[in-house]
Every structure is written in C-alpha cells, then in structure tokens.
Lab assay of single mutants.
Amino acid sequence: GKRLNIQLKKGTEGLGFSITSRDVTIGGSAPIYVKNILPRGAAIQDGRLKAGDRLIEVNGVDLVGKSQEEVVSLLRSTKMEGTVSLLVFRQED
C-alpha cells in the first residue's frame, strides 16, 4: 500500500466524508476508515480521498488508540475555511 498526504479546505459544505471503524476489539481501538465520500464537500472537490482509505493522522495527531468519536471531534474542530491535513494509507488493488 501507500501513504498519501491530503489537505482539505473546510468550506460551507464541510469536509464531505464519513468514517467508520472496523474490527473493534473490546477495550481496544480499531483502525478508522473512510466510509464514503459525500456528493458535496471538500473531499469530492479535491478528488483524492477514497472510500476504504485508512486514516492514520489528522492534523499531525496520530489516531492510534483514538475512538471513532474522538476522530470525529478532531475533524470537526477545524475552523471554517481552515485546512485539515490527513495522512491516509491506501491498500493497492
């Protein structure tokens, strides 16, 4: 696979993607993946982020050990017109 650095500018329609966690172990944390890209928002305008990408970092914060809720609040904490920096891991087909 490969790592991608993606910067998304948060506009009025938001970042435009949803996340999910897979393989949750009890008391553990699961990897966070991009669930889908919404028809409006920064992600589809940028065009690089894809469903199935694994989020590794948000704005330089390592997501290991973070819950899905914590990751959502990290993403939401970005101000309007601010930039969210994502490091994602993509499995090659």
Score class of each variant (00 low, 15 high):
Glu81Gly: 13
Leu15Tyr: 04
Asn5Leu: 10
Lys9Gln: 15
Ser67Lys: 13
Ala51Asn: 04
Gly65Val: 03
Arg48Asp: 02
Ser77Ile: 11
Val64Gly: 10
Asn36Glu: 15
Glu92Lys: 10
Glu81Arg: 09
Ser73Arg: 12
Val84Arg: 00
Ile44Glu: 14
Ile19Thr: 05
Leu8Ser: 01
Gly52Pro: 01
Gly82Gln: 11
Ser18Val: 05
Val88Tyr: 02
Thr83Lys: 10
Val88Gln: 01
Met80Trp: 05
Thr25Gln: 09
Phe17Gln: 03
Tyr33Asn: 02
Arg76Met: 09
Leu38Tyr: 13
Glu70Pro: 01
Glu69Cys: 12
Asp53Ser: 01
Thr12Asp: 10
Gly52Tyr: 02
Asn36Ala: 12
Gly52Leu: 03
Arg54Val: 09
Val88Met: 03
Gly52Ile: 01
Asp23Phe: 09
Thr25Cys: 15
Glu92Trp: 14
Val71Gln: 01
Lys66Pro: 00
Val84Met: 04
Leu49Val: 00
Gly65Thr: 07
Leu75Phe: 11
Gln68His: 14
Glu81Leu: 09
Gln7Trp: 09
Ile56Phe: 05
Val64Asp: 10
Asp23Val: 06
Lys35Pro: 01
Ser67Val: 06
Ser73Thr: 11
Val34Ala: 14
Asp53Ala: 00
Lys66Thr: 07
Ser67Ala: 07
Ile56Val: 15
Val64Asn: 10
Ser21Val: 08
Thr12Trp: 06
Ser77His: 10
Ile32His: 12
Ile44Pro: 07
Ser85Ile: 06
Gly11Arg: 07
Asp46Lys: 00
Val24Leu: 10
Leu74Trp: 06
Ser18Trp: 11
Ile44Val: 09
Gln68Phe: 07
Gln91His: 15
Arg54Gly: 04
Glu57Phe: 06
Thr20Trp: 05
Leu74Arg: 04
Ala43Phe: 00
Gln91Asp: 11
Lys35Asn: 07
Gln68Lys: 09
Asn5Asp: 13
Leu74Gly: 03
Ser77Ala: 14
Val71Glu: 00
Asp46Ala: 02
Leu87Ile: 10
Gly60Lys: 04
Asp46His: 02
Glu81His: 11
Thr25Asp: 14
Leu55Val: 05
Leu8Ile: 08
Thr78Cys: 10
Leu63Tyr: 00
Leu4Trp: 04
Gly1His: 04
Glu69His: 09
Gly27Cys: 14
Ile6Phe: 02
Gly11Cys: 10
Ala30Arg: 07
Gln45Cys: 15
Gly11Ile: 08
Ala43His: 00
Leu15Trp: 09
Glu57Lys: 12
Ile19Phe: 03
Gln91Pro: 14
Thr12Ser: 13
Ala42Thr: 04
Lys50Gly: 05
Ile6Pro: 00
Arg76Glu: 10
Glu92Cys: 07
Ile32Gln: 01
Val58Met: 09
Ser67Asn: 08
Ile26Ala: 08
Arg48Tyr: 02
Val88Arg: 01
Ser21Tyr: 07
Gln45Lys: 13
Gly28Gln: 04
Tyr33Pro: 00
Arg22Asp: 13
Ser21Gln: 15
Leu4His: 07
Gly11Asn: 14
Asp93Ala: 09
Gly1Asp: 13
Gly60Trp: 03
Lys66Trp: 14
Glu69Gly: 10
Leu86Gln: 03
Val84Phe: 04
Pro31Trp: 10
Ile56Thr: 05
Gly41Met: 00
Lys9Glu: 07
Asn5Arg: 12
Lys9Phe: 11
Gly60Asn: 07
Ser73His: 13
Asp23Trp: 06
Val72Asn: 12
Arg54Cys: 08
Val84Trp: 02
Leu49Pro: 00
Asp23Asn: 13
Glu57His: 06
Ile37Glu: 00
Ser85Pro: 02
Ser29Lys: 14
Lys79Phe: 14
Gly14Asn: 07
Thr83Tyr: 12
Lys2Phe: 15
Val71Gly: 01
Gly16Ser: 05
Lys50Gln: 13
Gly65Phe: 07
Thr20Arg: 06
Ile6Leu: 04
Val88Cys: 07
Arg3Leu: 09
Val64Lys: 15
Lys2Arg: 12
Val71Leu: 05
Asp23Tyr: 09
Asn5Trp: 10
Gly41Lys: 01
Ser29His: 15
Arg90Lys: 05
Asp53Gly: 03
Asn36His: 09
Glu81Cys: 06
Asp93Ser: 13
Ile44Leu: 09
Arg3Asp: 10
Lys35Ala: 09
Thr20Gln: 12
Thr83Arg: 10
Gly52Phe: 02
Lys2Val: 07
Glu13Lys: 08
Glu13Val: 04
Leu86Tyr: 00
Glu57Gly: 07
Gly52Lys: 04
Phe89Val: 11
Thr83Met: 12
Ser21Met: 10
Val88Phe: 03
Glu81Asn: 14
Lys50Pro: 00
Leu87Ser: 13
Leu8Thr: 03
Thr83Ser: 11
Ser21Pro: 06
Gly14Asp: 07
Phe17Gly: 00
Ala51Trp: 03
Lys9Asp: 07
Gly82Asn: 15
Val84Gln: 02
Lys35Phe: 02
Tyr33Val: 11
Leu87Gly: 13
Gln68Ile: 14
Leu55Arg: 02
Ala51Gly: 06
Pro31Ile: 07
Leu74Thr: 06
Leu49Arg: 01
Ser21Ile: 09
Ile56Met: 13
Gly60Phe: 02
Phe89Ser: 14
Arg90His: 04
Gln91Ala: 13
Ile32Thr: 05
Glu81Tyr: 08
Glu81Ala: 12
Leu38Gly: 08
Arg90Gln: 06
Ser73Glu: 15
Ile19Ala: 00
Gly52Ser: 02
Val61Arg: 08
Asp62Phe: 04
Gly1Ala: 05
Val71Ser: 03
Ala51Thr: 07
Gly1Gln: 05
Leu15Lys: 00
Val72Leu: 12
Glu70Ile: 04
Ile32Gly: 01
Gly60Asp: 11
Leu87Gln: 14
Lys66Tyr: 07
Val61Met: 10
Gly82Trp: 05
Thr12Leu: 13
Tyr33Met: 12
Gln68Leu: 12
Gly65Arg: 06
Glu81Gln: 13
Arg3Cys: 13
Arg22Lys: 15
Ser77Gly: 14
Met80Pro: 14
Gln91Glu: 14
Glu69Tyr: 09
Val88Ala: 07
Gln7Arg: 15
Val88Glu: 03
Asp62Ala: 08
Tyr33Glu: 08
Asp93Leu: 13
Met80Ile: 14
Ile32Ala: 04
Ser29Val: 09
Leu63Phe: 03
Arg54His: 06
Arg76Tyr: 15
Ile19Pro: 01
Leu74Cys: 15
Arg40Ala: 04
Ile26Val: 08
Val61His: 11
Glu70His: 07
Gln7Thr: 14
Glu57Tyr: 04
Arg3Ser: 11
Arg40Val: 05
Ile26Asn: 13
Leu38Asn: 10
Arg90Trp: 00
Leu63Lys: 02
Leu49Cys: 01
Leu75Val: 06
Asp62Pro: 14
Thr78Ile: 15
Gly65Trp: 05
Thr83Cys: 05
Lys2Ser: 08
Val88His: 01
Arg48His: 06
Leu15Ala: 02
Tyr33His: 10
Ile26Gly: 12
Glu92Gln: 10
Val61Gly: 03
Asn59Phe: 02
Phe17Trp: 02
Ala51Lys: 07
Lys50Tyr: 03
Leu15Cys: 03
Val58Thr: 02
Gly60Ala: 04
Lys2Leu: 08
Thr25Gly: 04
Arg76Cys: 08
Glu70Asp: 13
Leu87Cys: 06
Asn5Ser: 12
Ser85Thr: 14
Ala30Cys: 15
Ser18Cys: 12
Ile26Gln: 12
Ser67Trp: 02
Ser77Gln: 13
Ile26Lys: 14
Asn59Asp: 12
Gly11Phe: 05
Ser18Pro: 01
Arg22Phe: 10
Lys9Arg: 14
Pro31Gly: 08
Leu75Ile: 13
Ile56Ser: 04
Phe89Met: 13
Leu87Pro: 02
